[in-house]
Design a protein around this nucleic acid. Structure first.
Lengths: 198, 198
DNA sequence: TTGACATGTCACCGGATGGTGACTTATAAA
DNA sequence: TTTATAAGTCACCATCCGGTGACATGTCAA
């Protein structure tokens, strides 16, 4: 093995991602990550201090949460000119699409949902900050009367995040086929319908 | 220890519930359950065959999923006379309320979301059957044009189930205060709003 | 009273885990 | 060329896990 500390660090960070993809967060331990990196586990302690710090480095290294541009698919200013219901719809549909292409993020979301660790807590805080920022940027003209619409938006996000989590292994939920494009098209329709409520 | 096989069986089954409440499904193992029951773990193998069968017995023993009457809070026939949107609203709000009082069911839902085991698979199938039955009983007059409404209903159920899972340890999600009655009142409002969409 | 059987206890196994100390060896400065 | 130190290897620890075989003892029928 070449003696390159920085390369080994990188290998370890990437190994977190592969271990996460292959075994899920359940099997995520010092031994598994070291094995995936092809490196001795003691280096995790030497280079990062421990598994939590390595996971943190992994979290920092990735664009876990999609950028606003990726979610919206167009300039922020363009979306901002739309009616509020359309804006919400654009954010929700864009976010759904972005997350569907991020299996590791979904894995972490599942993790976050069931376990409370320093890492998942930090990730949760970051997501809260992300949603606050979206709110401030896209809905700075929202008043108290829009509170219900924004809560509905959060509820819908929670809904399809849950569906994404279940889709990792399950095939159907509440009659929705999670393993087919048809099912997800229905979900998008339902989101559109809900956005224009009230 | 009294030599009463049936009592010991019952103790073990109840111990699953207490272990589930105290440590969550993560720490649910042969040793933990036996410890909680104050009984030797070998009896799990003798009386049930193994942990999966014991968990199955626990699943059978409890009213995990609320009955239709508990959800609706009134006679099925009465609800059936309502317009479709009102019917969906009644089911969703009733289900949310029923689940909020079932911490162990929520724990199992969280489990089900992240792990695929024979038990969680059976529980998932049972829930699917439950929702199909609700559909057949309350919405036998639904046509293809109602498909979108029912998908939205499933999405909303997914949403508040996810919120219930996160509320076990988290305090806020997407701006919704999960640890306060105010937050849940907002969720109920959002559900009502969504039900009358389209 | 005796003996058979069911109930329950205990000690142990192999394997995986997180974690650490002692070792080898490549590299690079003196 | 020598030598100090960083990079990487290896063996081992305690602990927990699921699982099992051998044993003790209460109960009840013969």
């Amino acid at each position: 093995m070449a003696r390159d500390k920085e390369l080994t660090r990188q290998r370890l960070i990437e190994a977190v991602g592969t271990a996460l993809s292959e075994q899920g967060f359940q099997g995520l331990g010092v031994n598994a990550v070291a094995r995936a990196a092809g490196v001795d586990k003691v280096l995790i302690y030497r280079y990062f201090g421990g598994l939590p710090e390595l996971l943190e480095a992994y979290g920092e290294s990735q664009g876990f949460w999609p950028s606003r541009e990726e979610v919206l698919g167009r300039e922020v200013a363009v979306v901002k000119a739309l009616p509020k219901a359309e804006r919400v719809e654009a954010v929700l549909l864009g976010l759904l699409d972005a997350l569907r292409h991020r299996p590791q993020t979904i894995e972490v979301l599942a993790w976050e949902a069931v376990q409370q660790s320093p890492l998942t807590q930090r990730l949760a805080e970051r997501r809260e900050a992300w949603s606050r920022q979206i709110l401030a940027e896209l809905f700075d003209d929202a008043g108290p009367e829009d509170r219900s619409l924004l809560t509905l938006a959060s509820l819908l996000v929670a809904g399809f995040q849950y569906l994404l989590i279940r889709a990792r292994r399950g095939t159907v939920y509440g009659g929705i086929a999670l393993d087919s494009e048809v099912g997800w098209a229905e979900v998008r329709d339902a989101i559109r319908r809900a956005c224009h409520a009230g």
